[in-house]
Design a protein around this nucleic acid. Structure first.
Length: 266
DNA sequence: ATGGCTGGCGACGCCAGA
């Protein structure tokens, strides 16, 4: 018997207030089952829960004034929260991690620090945050249930994942330490869904607002879907909904997705 | 080597993004 498929997606909206029309249009057209959002740039009270409910999505969110902010959406269901915030630093108040069970998959919404300028305190924070992520992700990778880390990792994994590696070589997103942190994650057993499906063919998820880079497909791959071995075994396809990035007043990121088998009900 | 564009904040210019 063929099993139902599930579409997992991650979308850095760059302001939920400014991007709600784009988000709703994308949900209506692509109907993803599980969605991680980043960069809400809004307080909890400003999260558009009613509009999302009307669109058929249950939501869980962790906002913050002006910056950061993550959320999880479930098509037809409210995600069941398992963790709010990354462990390892009680003084870190930035809203960058939210974890819940959605449609039988344990999913984390991740917004890793940008880290620019580097070197400097922001880059140090980026690396410390990635270490904390690795420590927690290790406890999730080997779980005998499907687990996915969905988010903006703010790491360009290799020079094949950017249109101009030379022009960006000093950027925090390309630094060897950042790339090593990402490789360390993968070494725990996570599968990078987009890379698994497309290999080294360039598939970008972010295009900056300058020089018509979106139209010219001069982008970076920084939004990633990492699947633990249980879930990776059911991976069917992965891609990027670039049409969203080509809309008027779009986010600088596009929704990135992976199709997997829906876990059997237990 | 730099600046280019955008959202949020809060009131015109600044910070942060990547």
């Amino acid at each position: 018997m063929a099993r139902r498929l599930l579409t997992l997606a991650t979308f850095n909206v760059n302001g939920i207030g400014a991007r709600l029309p784009h988000l709703l249009a994308w949900l209506a057209r692509e109907k993803p089952d599980v969605v991680a959002l980043q960069e809400l740039k809004a307080l909890d009270a400003a999260f558009p829960v009613a509009e999302l409910e009307a669109a058929g999505y249950g939501a869980l969110w962790q906002g913050q004034r002006s910056w950061n902010g993550v959320a999880l959406l479930g098509r037809g269901v409210v995600p069941v929260e398992s963790r709010r915030g990354l462990p390892g630093d009680a003084k870190d108040t930035q809203s960058r991690y939210l974890e819940a069970a959605v449609h039988g998959v344990l999913v984390a919404a991740i917004y890793a620090p940008n880290g620019n300028p580097q070197p400097g305190p922001k880059f140090d924070y980026k690396l410390r945050w990635m270490q904390r992520l690795a420590r927690h992700a290790r406890t999730l990778a080997g779980q005998p249930v499907p687990v996915a880390l969905l988010g903006d990792f703010n790491v360009v994994p290799t020079d094949a994942d950017i249109y101009d590696p030379k022009g960006w070589r000093r950027d925090a997103l390309l630094q060897p330490e950042a790339r090593e942190a990402y490789r360390d994650l993968l070494a725990q057993g996570w599968t990078d869904a987009l890379h698994q499906v497309h290999g080294d063919a360039p598939v970008f998820t972010f295009w900056d607002y300058f020089r018509q880079h979106a139209e010219r497909d001069r982008g970076l791959r920084i939004d990633h879907l990492l699947l633990n071995p249980v879930l990776a075994a059911t991976l069917k396809d992965a891609g990027v909904h670039r049409w969203v990035r080509l809309q008027e007043k779009a986010s600088d990121h596009a929704p990135t997705w992976a199709r997997v088998a829906a876990p059997a009900r237990r």
